[in-house]
Design a protein around this nucleic acid. Structure first.
Lengths: 144, 144
DNA sequence: TATTGTTATACTCTATAACTATA
DNA sequence: TATAGTTATAGAGTATAACAATA
């Protein structure tokens, strides 16, 4: 891929990004409201989405994923455990390792959170259908 | 405006929102990197964007805008003041009130931060021009 | 001896309540 | 007496370093 970009293309991408950035930021209050309603911090939210109810994650891998110290991961998992969202299980082969999994309540909370976050802002719902269709077609071309 | 929406329109808006949400979230690491480079926390960033170098803001209005306690606003402003990003000025007519303004350094830091945040992600810059044009046209129709 | 995780400790961020100064 | 802001204090969240248990 080329690293040389035309001036106009740069300006185009900048305009697209600025609009998307501003719109997304304008909706951040709604996300804070959703978290407060479920009595979760942004950090709790990130933690819930890292975990699942099946495989289990080692404390070490969680600290790495969360870019924090191992002792901080202990603190975060303790907090979730106290609230019944996760549990620690011993790893069969290695007595040093603990596996953290979501409880049924943890999975339910994570799913409720995800549904709420994915629910579109009211003013997006009220856009003309044609504009939404154009937006969707363009969004499908986003690189990830 | 109608509050009755067709099923297909709901699904359309949900798809658009989910794509935008996921793309934006996938770029959050870059934003944290920018903040770290300027030695700012997300909170510092919010504070810088609330202030300016001219009008000045009362402590009370800042606490309200930041949805925090007045004593917390004092703490946040103290932190910025220690780093030379803001200064407190007395309000001429009312000796109780203090006005917080960005210093020249504060304005420069805020501008550098804004420029970095508005710089589009690399993979957006590398999208085909036609796709970017379609994206821009759709973005211009966003409600805010 | 190296690795996994926790505990002890300190520093940052946030809130409640008490306080000072001005209106 | 009411308002603007700060200080005292306590609790949540994060990091570093020391530690215990297991490999």
């Amino acid at each position: 891929m080329s690293t040389v970009l035309s001036q106009s293309k740069r300006a185009l991408a900048a305009e697209v990004w600025r609009r998307m950035f501003d719109y997304f930021m304008s909706t951040s209050g709604e996300r804070l409201r959703i978290l407060a309603e479920l009595d979760l911090t942004p950090n709790d939210s990130r933690a819930l989405h890292t975990l699942d109810g099946l495989a289990g994650r080692t404390m070490r891998s969680l600290a790495e994923e969360w870019s924090c110290d191992a002792s901080n991961a202990t603190w975060i998992v303790n907090r979730l455990e106290t609230r019944g969202l996760v549990e620690r299980r011993a790893k069969p082969g290695d007595g040093r390792v603990k596996l953290v999994v979501l409880t049924a309540f943890g999975e339910k909370t994570r799913d409720r959170l995800k549904d709420a976050m994915y629910f579109p802002p009211q003013d997006l719902l009220e856009m003309p259908t044609a504009a939404l269709q154009a937006l969707k077609a363009a969004m499908l071309k986003l690189p990830r």
